[in-house]
């Protein structure tokens, strides 16, 4: 692994060193593709699992149960062993036709031309602003990703008594992080009449002693410097205040597709992902996409299945668990290899 990009050309450039990008890179090397570069903007490879310390990770890939950080390390090691080159602190600022990338790196701006480019930039939760939530703009409002990176990477906490908004899989993960970090959420609220994922949410709210309020919606955040309460309203229109020192907005995942959005590539406006064909190939055939950045259309035939223990009949576009990203990275890499060999 290096911080210095020396190449000006390569066979495949993969943007993002998370599960999808790393598994694609490994697969490409194993398929005999010579020059495979993974470009990662962070100072460390591994992606989101680096700060998800809870299992289960790795069931599909390594046939064993791992925590996020050890899973991330294993993915990186596997890729390096296969001969993948991972370059850290490389931020792509521009995608152009024919696989021409502009890259900001600590050594300055660079250009890289790749025969094929794979977008594996992942996903993030929708922040408060894009949800258009009313109220003050105080400190203590964040997403699960922020909480987890703050706690697992820096051992800091953004609040002690937050209200947790949402009941997705990630909300469960958030409760588990809170417990580890000594944070006691004062409430978990869900706008709908049922949790987004029924199990493990009911179970989790019992285990973590967090009261779950269904049919409850946040109508206002209160707090001058830091959050001190939220106003909520229920189905009957009854309003009340819950004292808290933060608001944790969980889930409502949105593809991290800014690069595609700012480029010549076509976007699927329904999902926010780059538009792709049956080979996960973008509107410019030099570009592919895989992993969480590629959310399946709700009505698409080949929507990826959800592992049984997360299944709920009301699950909206879910964030893919790492194993599915890994799998999708692998099959997309096979298509890219076929493409480079003139066989697609």
């Amino acid at each position: 692994m290096t911080d210095v990009l020396k190449h000006e050309n390569c066979d495949v450039a993969i943007i993002g060193a998370g599960p999808a990008g790393l598994s694609a890179a490994t697969t490409l090397k194993r398929a005999g593709i010579e020059s495979v570069l993974v470009l990662e903007r962070e100072a460390e490879a591994g992606g989101i699992p680096r700060h998800c310390a809870h299992p289960p990770y790795g069931l599909r890939e390594y046939k064993r149960v791992l925590t996020g950080p050890s899973y991330a390390k294993k993915l990186v090691a596997t890729a390096l062993n296969a001969g993948v080159q991972i370059v850290l602190k490389q931020t792509i600022t521009k995608l152009e036709a024919k696989g021409v990338l502009t890259i900001a790196s600590p050594e300055g701006l660079k250009k890289l031309t790749a025969k094929r480019v794979l977008l594996a930039t992942g996903i993030r939760e929708t922040p408060r602003s894009a949800r258009l939530v009313s109220g003050d703009r105080a400190l203590g409002i964040c997403n699960t990703g922020t909480l987890q990176s703050m706690y697992y990477l820096k051992k800091m906490v953004p609040f002690r008594r937050p209200v947790v908004v949402g009941t997705e899989i990630v909300s469960f993960s958030a409760l588990s992080t809170c417990k580890k970090a000594g944070i006691q959420p004062v409430a978990m609220i869900e706008e709908n009449q049922r949790p987004t994922v029924r199990w493990p949410i009911h179970h989790a709210t019992r285990v973590f002693a967090v009261p779950l309020f269904l049919n409850t919606r946040i109508i206002k955040i209160l707090g001058k410097d830091r959050v001190h309460a939220v106003q909520v309203v229920d189905l009957n229109g009854d309003r009340r205040e819950i004292g808290c020192d933060g608001v944790l907005f969980t889930g409502q995942f949105t593809p991290e597709s800014a690069l595609a959005r700012m480029s010549h590539l076509e976007l699927d406006y329904e999902t926010g992902s780059p538009a792709v064909d049956q080979f996960n190939r973008c509107s410019d055939p030099a570009y592919y996409a895989a992993g969480n950045v590629l959310q399946p259309s709700p009505d698409s035939d080949n929507a990826i299945s959800i592992p049984i223990y997360y299944t709920a009949d009301n699950l909206p576009q879910p964030v893919e668990v790492a194993g599915q990203c890994w799998h999708q990275g692998r099959i997309t890499a096979e298509w890219i290899a076929d493409d480079l060999n003139g066989k697609l």
């Binding site: 939760e125 906490v157 830091r226």
Partner: peptide, 25 residues
């Protein structure tokens, strides 16, 4: 701030009257 709050909390620790982190875990 989804991605950078943790790093910013670290870089500004002890410098703001109302800090990003309410303390250590």
């Amino acid at each position: 701030g989804f991605y950078c709050s943790a790093r910013l909390a670290e870089l500004t620790k002890g410098k703001f009257a109302v800090p990003l982190g309410v303390g250590d875990a």
